[in-house]
Design a protein around this nucleic acid. Structure first.
Lengths: 136, 136
DNA sequence: GAGTATATTGAGAAAGATTCGCATTAGTAT
DNA sequence: ATACTAATGCGAATCTTTCTCAATATACTC
């Protein structure tokens, strides 16, 4: 939210980067595509270029400020890194995204990776289902 | 591998569909993009159109013959449904894809979905890491 | 606080992935 | 064999994302 946050992760504190970071913090929707961010910012009166949004989100990802997800859609969605790691459960009807964290699953993943000789670097778990509001 | 397989899932047994299904069965690589399938088939002397490959793979997915995955790449990869469900662990260096199945993780997922009031329909778990061959 | 070197921006072009439209061709049920 | 309908293949169109490059803004030095 302040330019020091950007400098702390090695990014120059430019106006577009500050605007985008602020926008992500202010947004009630936590998972957004680059296009979503771009359009919403224009609607809010913020003037940014689409290419810049893509670039900055990728930089934020490298810097660890956001996480990029590949849900079962044709595009990336980004999420601001606030607290700790979590996985996602999303509704196939309304598209709502909920979050969860399960230490048992986390541990098993490490065990499985180790057993197969892998050094784990990351993982993505998405559960698809019908949310309470969309049942029948 | 035979035209009855296609009819069984409600698809007309056309030559392109048979060729693609045969190709998938014969391929040593189990995870391929539409482009991969298209190019490999051309190299093998099979004559198909790219649009047809996309269409047929999508139909195969609907019919349950293949599964579509969204790994951390910009495109879909398809996998022939042979045996039972499994998850994936893939090497971030060489791109190799291994498979695993863990009943504990499966069960936990169902519990979590239920606890949040979701009716689970599917899930995707991908573990990323460095495979044994790519360790330093 | 101005001057300068350099990184960043924005607009449009370009690339990559996927789908669409439509005339031609091929399955399938008579 | 015939005719009806669905499927193919090509290129055009669409969508997402990246690239190019001239104009501009940031940060560093004095």
């Amino acid at each position: 939210m302040d330019s020091q946050d950007l400098k702390n992760v090695g990014l120059k504190a430019t106006l577009p980067r500050l605007k985008i970071l602020n926008f992500l913090h202010a947004s009630p929707v936590r998972h957004m595509s680059a296009e979503d961010v771009y359009k919403s910012m224009l609607e809010t009166g913020e003037d940014v270029g689409l290419a810049t949004v893509y670039r900055v989100l990728t930089q934020f990802e490298s810097a660890g400020l956001v996480t990029r997800h590949h849900f079962d859609e044709g595009h990336s969605v980004f999420e601001l890194n606030l607290g700790e790691h979590h996985d996602h459960i999303l509704c196939v009807k309304c598209g709502k995204v909920d979050e969860f964290f399960d230490p048992v699953i986390e541990d098993r993943q490490y065990d499985i990776a180790r057993n197969q000789g892998y050094t784990i670097t990351d993982h993505a778990l998405v559960v698809y289902g019908v949310c309470p509001d969309c049942q029948d």
